[in-house]
């Protein structure tokens, strides 16, 4: 599934990023490397997300979130809405 479809409070593993190279690199540098964990903290209808990667929160536009392939982990973050 894509990160843009992610549910609030759910943890995901990053599987693949299919975005322009500079954007992909930027995301990797921010910690979104293969198999890294991402928790969705906030979400808008458009697919724009607030996520937490390696302890840092980011707001991520819908188009970016849509280019990130993820897989749900079985962990639900405590305190999810």
């Amino acid at each position: 599934m894509r990160l843009s479809e992610g549910k609030i409070g759910q943890e995901y593993f990053v599987k693949d990023i299919s975005l322009d190279m500079p954007v992909k690199r930027r995301l990797e540098i921010l910690g979104m490397t293969g198999n890294s964990r991402v928790v969705v903290l906030g979400s808008k209808k458009s697919g724009t997300k607030i996520i937490k990667v390696r302890g840092t929160r980011f707001a991520l536009g819908a188009e970016f979130a849509n280019g990130i392939e993820v897989e749900a982990s079985d962990k639900k973050e405590e305190g999810g809405r």
């Binding site: 930027r26 707001a59 536009g61 188009e63 970016f64």
Partner: peptide, 10 residues
């Protein structure tokens, strides 16, 4: 230009 929102929320 795509929606280029990518910003840290401190």
């Amino acid at each position: 230009e795509v929606n280029t929102l990518l910003i840290e929320l401190p």
